[in-house]
Design a protein around this nucleic acid. Structure first.
Length: 253
DNA sequence: ATGGCATATCCTATATGA
Protein backbone atom coordinates (compact mmCIF):
# COMPACT_ATOMS: atom_id res chain seq x y z
CA UNK A 1 0.00 0.00 0.00
CA UNK A 2 2.68 2.47 1.03
CA UNK A 3 0.02 4.03 3.29
CA UNK A 4 -3.66 3.09 3.17
CA UNK A 5 -4.68 6.55 4.34
CA UNK A 6 -2.98 8.17 1.35
CA UNK A 7 -4.96 6.11 -1.19
CA UNK A 8 -8.02 4.57 0.46
CA UNK A 9 -10.36 5.88 -2.24
CA UNK A 10 -8.31 4.29 -5.01
CA UNK A 11 -8.23 0.98 -3.15
CA UNK A 12 -11.95 0.80 -2.48
CA UNK A 13 -12.74 1.82 -6.05
CA UNK A 14 -10.55 -1.03 -7.26
CA UNK A 15 -12.30 -3.56 -4.99
CA UNK A 16 -15.67 -2.58 -6.37
CA UNK A 17 -14.55 -2.44 -9.98
CA UNK A 18 -12.72 -5.77 -9.83
CA UNK A 19 -15.47 -7.47 -7.79
CA UNK A 20 -12.97 -8.72 -5.21
CA UNK A 21 -14.17 -10.67 -2.13
CA UNK A 22 -11.04 -10.49 0.02
CA UNK A 23 -8.09 -8.08 -0.05
CA UNK A 24 -4.88 -8.65 1.94
CA UNK A 25 -3.00 -5.39 2.43
CA UNK A 26 0.60 -4.74 3.45
CA UNK A 27 2.44 -1.60 4.47
CA UNK A 28 -0.69 0.19 5.61
CA UNK A 29 1.60 2.50 7.62
CA UNK A 30 -0.90 3.33 10.35
CA UNK A 31 -2.09 2.16 13.74
CA UNK A 32 -5.33 0.23 14.22
CA UNK A 33 -6.94 3.42 15.53
CA UNK A 34 -5.93 5.38 12.43
CA UNK A 35 -7.18 2.86 9.87
CA UNK A 36 -9.87 4.33 7.54
CA UNK A 37 -12.60 1.75 8.16
CA UNK A 38 -15.55 3.82 7.01
CA UNK A 39 -14.76 3.85 3.28
CA UNK A 40 -14.51 0.06 3.29
CA UNK A 41 -17.73 -0.36 5.28
CA UNK A 42 -19.67 1.82 2.86
CA UNK A 43 -18.55 -0.51 0.07
CA UNK A 44 -19.59 -3.63 1.98
CA UNK A 45 -16.22 -4.73 3.36
CA UNK A 46 -15.20 -5.30 6.97
CA UNK A 47 -11.51 -4.83 7.68
CA UNK A 48 -9.36 -6.57 10.28
CA UNK A 49 -6.24 -4.51 10.95
CA UNK A 50 -2.88 -5.02 12.63
CA UNK A 51 -0.81 -1.87 12.87
CA UNK A 52 1.28 -0.38 15.66
CA UNK A 53 2.56 2.90 14.15
CA UNK A 54 3.77 4.41 10.88
CA UNK A 55 5.90 1.38 10.00
CA UNK A 56 4.72 -1.86 8.41
CA UNK A 57 1.05 -2.65 9.10
CA UNK A 58 -1.12 -5.38 7.57
CA UNK A 59 -4.88 -5.77 7.13
CA UNK A 60 -7.51 -8.00 5.55
CA UNK A 61 -10.70 -6.60 4.03
CA UNK A 62 -13.52 -9.08 3.38
CA UNK A 63 -17.10 -9.02 2.15
CA UNK A 64 -17.51 -12.77 2.84
CA UNK A 65 -16.97 -12.71 6.59
CA UNK A 66 -13.93 -13.11 8.81
CA UNK A 67 -13.13 -15.26 11.84
CA UNK A 68 -10.26 -16.60 13.95
CA UNK A 69 -8.08 -13.49 13.79
CA UNK A 70 -4.40 -13.99 14.68
CA UNK A 71 -1.71 -11.30 14.81
CA UNK A 72 1.76 -12.67 14.18
CA UNK A 73 2.60 -16.37 14.12
CA UNK A 74 4.21 -18.74 16.61
CA UNK A 75 7.98 -18.22 16.72
CA UNK A 76 7.93 -14.97 14.72
CA UNK A 77 11.27 -13.17 15.23
CA UNK A 78 11.43 -9.76 16.84
CA UNK A 79 13.28 -6.64 15.72
CA UNK A 80 14.74 -3.54 17.33
CA UNK A 81 15.93 -2.43 20.73
CA UNK A 82 14.13 -3.31 22.84
CA UNK A 83 13.11 -6.33 20.75
CA UNK A 84 9.51 -6.16 19.62
CA UNK A 85 7.20 -7.99 17.24
CA UNK A 86 6.49 -5.94 14.15
CA UNK A 87 3.08 -5.72 12.44
CA UNK A 88 3.93 -7.95 9.47
CA UNK A 89 1.56 -10.93 9.69
CA UNK A 90 -2.21 -11.23 10.11
CA UNK A 91 -4.24 -14.41 9.76
CA UNK A 92 -7.99 -14.28 9.08
CA UNK A 93 -10.34 -17.02 7.88
CA UNK A 94 -12.64 -15.77 5.11
CA UNK A 95 -15.32 -18.16 3.82
CA UNK A 96 -13.24 -21.22 4.65
CA UNK A 97 -9.89 -19.94 3.40
CA UNK A 98 -7.19 -19.10 5.93
CA UNK A 99 -5.70 -15.90 4.53
CA UNK A 100 -2.35 -14.69 5.88
CA UNK A 101 -1.46 -11.13 4.90
CA UNK A 102 2.35 -11.05 5.00
CA UNK A 103 4.86 -8.24 4.79
CA UNK A 104 8.23 -9.99 4.68
CA UNK A 105 11.10 -7.83 6.00
CA UNK A 106 13.00 -5.99 3.27
CA UNK A 107 16.53 -7.03 4.25
CA UNK A 108 18.03 -3.67 3.15
CA UNK A 109 21.57 -4.86 2.23
CA UNK A 110 23.23 -8.25 2.68
CA UNK A 111 25.52 -7.02 5.48
CA UNK A 112 22.67 -5.44 7.47
CA UNK A 113 21.22 -7.25 10.50
CA UNK A 114 17.87 -6.74 8.78
CA UNK A 115 18.91 -9.32 6.19
CA UNK A 116 19.46 -12.01 8.84
CA UNK A 117 16.15 -10.96 10.37
CA UNK A 118 14.49 -11.47 6.98
CA UNK A 119 15.85 -14.99 6.60
CA UNK A 120 14.98 -15.91 10.19
CA UNK A 121 11.49 -14.52 9.71
CA UNK A 122 10.96 -16.64 6.58
CA UNK A 123 12.26 -19.76 8.36
CA UNK A 124 9.89 -19.20 11.25
CA UNK A 125 6.96 -18.60 8.90
CA UNK A 126 7.68 -21.83 7.04
CA UNK A 127 7.85 -23.76 10.33
CA UNK A 128 4.54 -22.27 11.45
CA UNK A 129 2.88 -22.92 8.08
CA UNK A 130 4.13 -26.50 8.10
CA UNK A 131 2.38 -26.96 11.42
CA UNK A 132 -0.92 -25.60 10.10
CA UNK A 133 -1.16 -28.09 7.25
CA UNK A 134 0.25 -30.93 9.34
CA UNK A 135 -2.56 -30.42 11.82
CA UNK A 136 -5.15 -30.34 9.00
CA UNK A 137 -3.95 -31.64 5.61
CA UNK A 138 -7.19 -30.45 4.01
CA UNK A 139 -6.77 -26.89 5.25
CA UNK A 140 -7.11 -24.17 2.64
CA UNK A 141 -4.28 -21.77 3.52
CA UNK A 142 -3.10 -18.80 1.47
CA UNK A 143 0.22 -17.09 2.30
CA UNK A 144 -0.09 -13.84 0.38
CA UNK A 145 1.54 -10.46 0.18
CA UNK A 146 4.85 -8.72 -0.29
CA UNK A 147 7.51 -11.44 -0.08
CA UNK A 148 10.34 -9.04 -0.93
CA UNK A 149 11.98 -11.82 -2.96
CA UNK A 150 12.37 -12.13 -6.72
CA UNK A 151 12.60 -15.91 -7.05
CA UNK A 152 13.86 -15.96 -10.66
CA UNK A 153 16.21 -13.82 -12.73
CA UNK A 154 13.34 -12.83 -15.01
CA UNK A 155 11.53 -11.37 -11.99
CA UNK A 156 13.74 -8.26 -12.13
CA UNK A 157 14.21 -5.98 -15.11
CA UNK A 158 18.00 -6.32 -15.19
CA UNK A 159 19.90 -8.87 -13.12
CA UNK A 160 23.17 -7.02 -13.62
CA UNK A 161 21.73 -4.24 -11.46
CA UNK A 162 21.12 -6.66 -8.61
CA UNK A 163 24.58 -8.13 -8.13
CA UNK A 164 25.18 -8.38 -4.41
CA UNK A 165 21.73 -7.02 -3.63
CA UNK A 166 18.94 -8.37 -1.50
CA UNK A 167 15.75 -9.85 -3.02
CA UNK A 168 17.72 -12.07 -5.44
CA UNK A 169 20.30 -13.76 -3.19
CA UNK A 170 20.48 -17.58 -3.22
CA UNK A 171 19.52 -17.72 0.45
CA UNK A 172 16.38 -15.66 -0.08
CA UNK A 173 15.39 -17.67 -3.13
CA UNK A 174 15.91 -20.92 -1.24
CA UNK A 175 13.84 -19.60 1.68
CA UNK A 176 11.00 -18.91 -0.76
CA UNK A 177 11.32 -22.25 -2.55
CA UNK A 178 11.40 -24.19 0.73
CA UNK A 179 7.68 -23.61 1.22
CA UNK A 180 7.28 -26.36 -1.39
CA UNK A 181 8.84 -28.80 1.05
CA UNK A 182 6.04 -28.22 3.56
CA UNK A 183 3.18 -28.50 1.08
CA UNK A 184 2.78 -25.06 -0.48
CA UNK A 185 2.71 -24.07 -4.16
CA UNK A 186 3.05 -20.62 -5.68
CA UNK A 187 -0.12 -20.42 -7.78
CA UNK A 188 0.23 -17.23 -9.85
CA UNK A 189 3.49 -18.02 -11.67
CA UNK A 190 1.97 -20.36 -14.25
CA UNK A 191 -1.09 -18.21 -14.88
CA UNK A 192 0.35 -14.73 -15.46
CA UNK A 193 3.67 -13.10 -16.35
CA UNK A 194 4.03 -9.53 -15.10
CA UNK A 195 5.96 -7.44 -12.59
CA UNK A 196 4.11 -6.49 -9.39
CA UNK A 197 6.28 -3.56 -8.25
CA UNK A 198 7.89 -0.52 -9.89
CA UNK A 199 9.99 2.01 -8.01
CA UNK A 200 8.65 5.55 -7.90
CA UNK A 201 12.01 6.88 -9.06
CA UNK A 202 13.69 7.11 -12.45
CA UNK A 203 10.51 6.64 -14.47
CA UNK A 204 10.65 2.98 -13.56
CA UNK A 205 7.03 2.29 -14.44
CA UNK A 206 6.91 3.83 -17.93
CA UNK A 207 10.21 2.09 -18.66
CA UNK A 208 8.84 -1.14 -17.20
CA UNK A 209 11.82 -1.51 -14.86
CA UNK A 210 9.94 -3.56 -12.31
CA UNK A 211 10.17 -6.52 -10.00
CA UNK A 212 7.95 -9.51 -9.32
CA UNK A 213 7.97 -9.85 -5.54
CA UNK A 214 4.30 -10.36 -4.57
CA UNK A 215 3.10 -13.95 -4.56
CA UNK A 216 0.43 -16.37 -3.41
CA UNK A 217 1.68 -19.57 -1.79
CA UNK A 218 -1.28 -21.95 -1.42
CA UNK A 219 -1.68 -25.19 0.51
CA UNK A 220 -2.47 -28.27 -1.59
CA UNK A 221 -6.20 -28.17 -0.86
CA UNK A 222 -6.40 -24.53 -1.90
CA UNK A 223 -4.03 -24.80 -4.88
CA UNK A 224 -6.39 -27.38 -6.41
CA UNK A 225 -9.17 -24.80 -6.40
CA UNK A 226 -7.34 -21.94 -8.09
CA UNK A 227 -8.95 -21.25 -11.46
CA UNK A 228 -7.28 -18.01 -12.50
CA UNK A 229 -4.88 -15.21 -11.62
CA UNK A 230 -4.10 -11.67 -12.71
CA UNK A 231 -1.69 -8.87 -11.86
CA UNK A 232 -3.45 -5.52 -12.03
CA UNK A 233 -0.83 -3.44 -13.80
CA UNK A 234 -3.30 -0.64 -14.55
CA UNK A 235 -3.43 0.14 -10.82
CA UNK A 236 0.09 1.55 -11.07
CA UNK A 237 -1.22 4.32 -13.37
CA UNK A 238 -2.86 7.64 -12.65
CA UNK A 239 -2.70 9.93 -9.64
CA UNK A 240 -1.47 8.62 -6.31
CA UNK A 241 -0.71 4.94 -7.00
CA UNK A 242 1.07 2.56 -4.66
CA UNK A 243 4.39 1.26 -5.96
CA UNK A 244 2.90 -2.29 -5.86
CA UNK A 245 -0.17 -3.48 -7.78
CA UNK A 246 -2.79 -6.05 -6.73
CA UNK A 247 -2.23 -9.75 -7.39
CA UNK A 248 -5.61 -11.46 -7.83
CA UNK A 249 -6.50 -15.15 -7.70
CA UNK A 250 -9.84 -16.80 -8.44
CA UNK A 251 -10.95 -19.67 -6.22
CA UNK A 252 -13.56 -22.21 -7.36
CA UNK A 253 -16.80 -22.52 -5.42
C1' DA B 1 26.85 13.64 -16.58
C1' DT B 2 23.82 13.78 -12.87
C1' DG B 3 19.89 12.97 -10.46
C1' DG B 4 15.43 12.51 -10.75
C1' DC B 5 10.02 9.39 -5.52
C1' DA B 6 6.71 8.99 -1.81
C1' DT B 7 5.17 8.17 2.78
C1' DA B 8 5.37 8.80 7.84
C1' DT B 9 6.39 11.90 12.05
C1' DC B 10 9.50 13.85 16.87
C1' DC B 11 8.20 17.90 10.23
C1' DT B 12 13.05 23.66 7.26
C1' DA B 13 15.11 16.75 8.93
C1' DT B 14 15.21 11.82 9.18
C1' DA B 15 13.74 6.96 8.57
C1' DT B 16 12.01 3.62 5.52
C1' DG B 17 11.39 1.35 1.27
C1' DA B 18 13.56 -2.56 -2.72
Amino acid sequence: MNSIRARVDRVVAFLERADVDVLAMQETKCSDEQFPHLAFQLAGYDVVTHGHNQWNGVAVASRVGHEDVETGFAGMPTWGDPPAEEARALGVTCDGVRVWSLYVPNGRVLADPHYAYKLNWLDALREAAAGWVRADPGAKVALVGDWNIAPRDEDVWDMTRFEGATHVSPAEREAFRAFEDVGFTEVTRDLVTQYTYWDYKQLAFPRNKGMRIDFVQASRALAEQITGASIERAERKGKGPSDHVPVVVEVAG
